[in-house]
Amino acid sequence: MKRHLISAADLSRDDAVLILDTAEELARIADRPIKKLPTLRGRTVVNLFYEDSTRTRISFEAAAKRLSADVINFSAKGSSVSKGESLKDTALTLEAMGADAVVIRHHDSGAPHRLATSGWINGSVVNAGDGTHEHPTQALLDAFTMRRHLEPGTGGGLDGRRITVVGDILHSRVARSNVLLLHTLGAQVTLVAPPTLVPVGVATWPCEVSYDLDAVLPKSDAVMMLRVQRERMNAAFFPTEREYARRYGLDGDRMARMPEHALVMHPGPMNRGMEITAEVADSPRCTAVEQVANGVSIRMAVLYLLLGGASPGEAPAAGTSAAPSAAPSATLSAPTTARTEETDR
């Protein structure tokens, strides 16, 4: 694997499957009374968030803490950034503080790429969503969720599975990362949206594009509904909320036309009544909440593989071989760890 995770395109099939398999092992930790591993003890993970995103930030925070990393949350609001500090100076500051990994969420496409390639910092950079570019860990947790339901087990991808992504493709970093990753994993992706919300240039993407949701639903193994901001209406991307919901929203009738095994997915936060009705959102077929839980496992796997630097086999070993309270003795004294776990909770 590369040193950074900026784009889903950074991942080979082997990389992606390794992350999914590692997450599968790490997910078992979540079922234990003490949800913690000593793997990243002494390493520092900085959550550098230029955009409000409580969900993604706490997911990364939980993931890093379960691996015993020290976590620093740096929010642009109320910090030096709001006083006009440049990304470069913020990065140099974090570097001086010894960040081993920087998890960055930024409103501008390409900011994580800049951070990783400009020589400002030495640590790993994890893209937690940049502008309308990419959100690779979201795509990984989506693929993880799909694989659990559609292709249970480890070692494999999503070969031949048909995945439909519906909504504001143009402005969606989730869609871009999903198209790339799902293609890498062997799935066939179809994007569905009004033509105004599909980017010019989409023809080179490894996917199909349709403007007709009803035609695609019966052939879908999973249907991922993307959040559509109501404000898009004001820029004439679609005439009214109701017209959007009628043509591209997922309601009970439409869900009934999907194959029985097919999943309904949503990266959240949901716009109930817009792209998805409450009936669908609350149905057992909707994996939105499960996706959130899986997000922690995926982010643990990503941080582990980027920072652990150990061979693939060791992650599962760490998770399965011993109780978390016993494991720390290998490197640090148990009391220290115990205290850390106390304060972290």
Partner: peptide, 9 residues
């Protein structure tokens, strides 16, 4: 075009 679509710019 093609590149802006990929880069999200």
């Amino acid at each position: 075009g093609v590149v802006s679509a990929e880069l999200g710019l």
